[in-house]
Design a protein around this nucleic acid. Structure first.
Length: 712
DNA sequence: GTCATCCTCGTTTTT
DNA sequence: CGAGGATGAC
């Protein structure tokens, strides 16, 4: 079977290098994932490796799934399958077998962000700290960032230089202790414990690195230090590692991703062969040229030259909207147009999640169906997490985090005070909360009402434990019943509660399907915990709303990059030099998702927290970095705007802010270049109607003329 | 201990 | 504007 004829020379080269380390530096749209996929297929087809000797690590579950299907597609008959997974799911797999070697029981629970914050709240209580002195979100962020750099509490204290490092150090310590006592791990621990396992148990390292003869890593530029350590360990014995990445698409440094991993691959893996993939198969040339021009403003890159055989193509358009509503309106109208032309996959991308709302509302108004990627995913909904917490407790009652989540959900009279006392009890006697509850019940430590409530709770969980022999879905069903959760929702009798009931039913259905996979209850829970929002992406949806981060690895014929404003992209919190380059890469990632047509849009006015920003927003500097010849302004020959101005044409005090951006822009336009024409200025009560005509000036000049104006 | 209401404060990006 | 915490009435 010859799979290689479908590849170009460089891709073929990368695929046929079957021993030793290989670094594939691949530009956007150059087929890097395809190269890995073919390499897996090639190794199997040529009998260079058995499928189970191959391990491929991707960035998201979705990508893993896709790669799996593609491999199966290339090799019709597969007796076994290669392991294709994410770092985190790999870690879970390893740790479920060997947790005891690093101090955990194999039934450890995985905490998500919410759970982490619950734990931190308890730590705060123990250390007598208040959220307003040091916001939990901050300690959470600091702890996670440290772990992403492979720092424990001590290293953090020594190396961070934070002014409040000492107190965070204490929080960090207690947090970690709490996790250990609950036999729980957070996302970061999954990686760290795996590293620890390989470090402290050379036998484990040997076992895994000889089990997998070939290691393939996708999106290598996004690996952080613990992931890097895992890669090193796994490639230890055979050194048959293929890493595929693009330094221009490194956008996860906030999660500890270290671009050095890719820049220093050749030093880390001596004898590495470097292959560059520079032909882009995705985008037409206006898109590719603009993207290339943009990213060439970055200093920290190896640099490569992308080229395409798709000449011509539509010009990139910019639309400047007076308000976010107008921006959404424009996007919807254009989407409508493209849909009518028969386009099937259109994406609207933005920097921050909150921007999705304006587009959702507009799309609904236009009755255009869409999918939102990100936001609150199914497994993140409260009702789902609650029911799953019950399920976790039934498997492992000592899981404090889950216990706290549902001990009073639905409320059964075990409030804050009781919970605090239980905590105290558990700290004093060094046992789990579940054990404390039982001690309390046995020794009658609480008033009659509370006592009964606790008894009832114990009973619910114990009954659940007895059900575990039943099929998973009926366990879930019975738990939803016995806990009183369904009843609570029914009694609420609102549309929202009904929706929640539907969601629970959907969970039961998912549990029913799970039986078919042959996985255990534990696997079911692991899967739920590691499922990310981006995994729910449906490639066939006509319109997709998505953040720039989530869009990585995807492609769409038509892309709208919305909110191209200073402060949004680049985000106001990333204006220092390094962070700025990352923002530029993020923008680059967005641009290079487009196959045929790329739009930029931004709004003169931006609302934060429901109120307007302090002045007109300025166009993103990234727009300015794109050569003018590659940009075209959407034709809006004349527009009518309304706003508050006093009759003589000057702006009323207090009202100028609202319309500051475009009104002032129109005026300076007139001033500075002498071409702009204010067609009409008519008072309308307290309002003023201004009609402006935009002639064909250079687009950047015009964007800037708006932005630079100061209103007097 | 619970529920309702008021208030505060904050939005980067994610496994 | 909205979520989630803090406060106060039962």
């Amino acid at each position: 079977m010859n799979l290689l004829h479908e590849l170009n020379e460089q891709q073929k080269h990368a695929v046929t290098l079957t021993t030793g380390p290989v670094l594939v530096l691949a530009g956007a749209g150059s087929g890097k994932t395809r190269t890995i996929t073919y390499k897996i297929a090639h190794l199997i087809a040529q009998q260079l490796a058995r499928p189970e000797q191959i391990l491929a690590v991707t960035f998201t579950n979705k990508a893993a799934e896709e790669m799996r299907t593609r491999v199966v597609g290339l090799l019709q008959a597969l007796s076994a399958s290669p392991l294709i997974c994410t770092f985190h799911s790999l870690a879970v797999r390893v740790l479920r077998r060997h947790a005891h070697r690093v101090g955990y029981r194999p039934d450890f629970t995985i905490c998500d962000t919410d759970d982490q914050k619950t734990i931190l709240r308890n730590v705060y209580e123990e250390l007598k700290l208040a959220d307003k002195d040091l916001p939990i979100r901050r300690s959470h962020a600091v702890i996670s960032r440290s772990k992403n750099k492979s720092w424990g509490p001590e290293q953090y204290l020594q190396r961070s230089g934070d002014y409040d490092a000492e107190i965070i150090f204490k929080i960090f310590l207690s947090y970690q202790k709490y996790l250990e006592q609950s036999n729980a791990v957070d996302f970061d621990d999954l990686l760290l414990l795996t590293v620890k396992l390989f470090e402290e148990h050379p036998a484990m390292r040997r076992e895994y690195s000889s089990r997998y003869q070939y290691i393939l890593i996708d999106e290598y530029q996004d690996t952080n230090p613990p992931q890097y350590e895992i890669v090193k360990s796994l490639a230890d014995v055979q050194q048959n590692i293929t890493a595929v990445g693009d330094e221009d698409q490194s956008i996860y440094s906030f999660r500890g991703a270290d671009i050095r991993n890719i820049l220093e691959f050749e030093r880390d893996f001596p004898g590495a062969v470097v292959v560059k993939l520079e032909q882009n198969y995705r985008s037409t040339s206006p898109i590719l040229e603009a993207a290339t021009a943009l990213v060439s403003h970055n200093v920290h890159r190896k640099g490569k030259t992308l080229w395409t055989e798709n000449p011509g193509g539509e010009p990139n358009e910019i639309y400047v909207a007076p308000t976010p509503e107008a921006e959404a309106d424009f996007v919807c109208r254009s989407i409508h147009h493209h849909l009518q032309e028969g386009e099937r996959n259109i994406a609207v991308m933005y920097r921050t999640n909150f921007q999705s709302r304006q587009f959702e509302e507009a799309l609904r108004r236009f009755r255009i169906p869409y999918q939102l990627v990100g936001g609150v995913s199914f497994y993140n909904r409260k009702e789902i997490k609650d029911i799953l917490a019950y399920l976790r407790l039934v498997i492992n009652a000592h899981d404090n985090v889950s216990l706290l989540r549902v001990i009073n959900e639905p409320s059964r009279g075990i409030g804050r005070i009781t919970q605090e006392k239980l905590h105290q009890l558990s700290r004093e006697s060094g046992v789990s909360l579940w054990a404390s509850v039982q001690i309390a019940v046995q020794n009658n430590l609480f008033p009659a009402k509370t006592h009964l409530a606790l008894q009832k709770f114990v009973q619910i969980i114990q009954e659940g434990m007895e059900l575990l022999d039943l099929p998973l879905y009926s366990v879930v069903e019975k738990i939803a019943q016995a806990s009183g959760y369904l009843e609570m929702l029914k009694r609420e009798n609102t549309e929202e509660a009904d929706n929640r009931i539907l969601n629970i039913n959907e969970l039961i259905a998912a549990a029913r399907e799970w039986i078919g996979t042959g996985g255990s209850v534990q696997d079911f829970l692991d899967n739920a915990a590691l499922r990310s929002e981006a995994d729910e992406f449906d490639a066939s949806a006509p319109v997709t709303l998505i953040t720039l981060h989530n869009a990585k690895g995807l492609e769409f014929p038509v892309v709208f990059l919305a909110g191209c404003e200073e402060g949004l992209v680049p985000h106001s919190r990333s204006l220092e030099e390094d962070a700025l380059e990352e923002e530029r890469r993020l923008f680059y990632v967005g641009m290079t998702r487009a196959q045929k047509k790329l739009y930029f849009s931004f709004s003169r006015v931006r609302r934060f927290y429901g109120a307007e920003g302090p002045g007109a927003s300025q166009p993103s500097r990234f727009l300015m970095e794109i050569p003018e010849r590659l940009l075209m302004q959407v034709q809006v020959p004349s527009r009518t705007y309304g706003g508050s101005v006093v009759p003589d044409g000057s702006f009323a005090r207090g009202s100028e802010r609202r319309l500051h951006g475009f009104v002032s822009g129109a005026m300076i336009f007139h001033d500075r270049f002498g071409h702009g024409r204010i067609l009409q200025v008519e008072p309308l009560g307290d309002d003023l109607k201004i009609t402006v005509q935009f002639p064909g000036l250079g687009i950047k000049k015009m964007l800037q003329s708006y932005a630079r104006l100061k209103l007097v």
